[in-house]
Design a protein around this nucleic acid. Structure first.
Lengths: 232, 232
DNA sequence: AATCAATTCTAGGGTGACCTAAATCCCATC
DNA sequence: GATGGGATTTAGGTCACCCTAGAATTGATT
């Protein structure tokens, strides 16, 4: 039984790496150097260097040329950061009325500076939210998350009725556009049509005023995660 | 007329130096290397190095062996950081009910990460406060402050009645103790006695429940700024 | 089995921000 | 007007994090 011996503070970049690796590992396989580099907009060579340092600190295990996996410590650290990030996002939108599309960037900076105490105070003020404004689940204080495997809107079939559960949060422009379309976590969609050859997906947006028909390209649809609610 | 050309983001350490120099300059003379080093808990040699960099960036002017002064740009940057810091302190105490003595440390970290937008939203939520929880004035958006020259409690004479305007905020333990004594910005004191040879100052604390007599050492009294309200 | 492209790692650099130790400068005092 | 102590700067080093260029590895394809 290893007692948890004070999680010592990590640097901002380290926290960013751990989050990225956590995310990449979610799909199953270990995170590749290139994928990490892409996600952090950093050269692959720099990733190699940093991964060595992370491994030295016992946060990841690295099989050269094979990829990187979080250790127990690494995973715990990643989840702590993720919790901070997502609670900050909630607080910014709900209490400070921050615009949907700018919340991510602000939280991205604050998550490295905000203390556990601050974040827990925010969580308490919000009544311990369980998901952030983009539908991502918030890890609990003791590091549990239930990352449900969701399909994307791009994979839904015509005739299906779905509920939007989550959307990607990185790109403000896409978020603004989705908001314009009325597509947000929690809203209901009916898939009307799916054009061949990766063509646009036509959906009926239940929750728009009076309902509305919208066409969404596959690229965007792939960033919208849905859960089936039955056939038409 | 130099148009203000986007204040580019400064690093955390740079902001800390500028704040320190601003503070030291308040007493009139240019900031000395040693004083800056003391305040930031850094070696004097490191300060020399950093000051060169600050001068290169046009934020300070440095006369070797003579001290450092903020330039216009440097002063503006310092005041922006100070505004962020103090609004954060207000927000943390008033909205998130943060304990008086821990607010400073948290704000110290957040001030480097919080965007202008966030801080202004907080300020708006508070109705644009003009001073922080320790009584320090908050610079306006356009960089104005009125730093009133105050006497300290250590300088007050027996018989005087004073109002506490401001207390130093760096040391949590001292703040907690002052709070215990009932001494906070806004409270009223009557100086009952001042023991010789830097002995303790005995005060009547008006605002304590039913009023209370307290003795304060000079060291602590020197960190409490007061404004006279008349003689007994 | 050999080769080739993509991936990943190593080598070698650069910057910011810190350090200690050793000059150097200032000035108050003799 | 020399001198010594205190303040300051320079010299030289470390660490984290990033870079580009080039070498090494992989495994997919001939």
């Amino acid at each position: 039984m290893t007692a948890s011996p004070e999680p010592q503070p990590l640097t901002g970049p380290v926290e960013d790496y751990l989050k990225a690796i956590y995310d990449l590992e979610l799909v199953g396989s270990p995170a590749s150097t290139n994928d990490i580099a892409d996600r952090l907009a950093i050269s692959p060579a720099s990733v190699s260097g940093m991964v060595r340092r992370l491994a030295d600190q016992g946060l990841v295990s690295h099989e050269p040329y094979r990829g990187v996996r979080l250790t127990g410590d690494g995973r715990r650290a990643a989840l702590r950061t993720l919790r901070r990030h997502r609670i900050l996002e909630c607080y910014l939108t709900e209490v400070l009325d921050y615009p949907w599309d700018r919340v991510h960037a602000e939280a991205e900076r604050l998550e490295h500076a905000a203390s556990e105490e601050l974040v827990e105070r925010m969580a308490a003020a919000l009544g311990d939210p369980v998901q952030d404004p983009h539908g991502a689940p918030i890890p609990t204080r003791d590091g549990r998350v239930e990352e449900s495997a969701l399909r994307t809107l791009a994979e839904a079939a015509p005739g299906e009725q779905v509920r939007v559960r989550r959307v990607h949060d990185k790109e403000p422009a896409r978020l603004r556009y989705l908001a314009e379309l009325g597509i947000r976590p929690g809203c209901h969609l009916r898939i009307l049509d799916k054009a061949p050859f990766d063509g646009p997906i036509t959906v009926w947006v239940e929750d728009a005023v009076g309902g509305a028909t919208r066409a969404v390209g596959v690229g965007l649809a792939a960033q919208v995660y849905v859960e089936s609610e039955g056939q038409a």
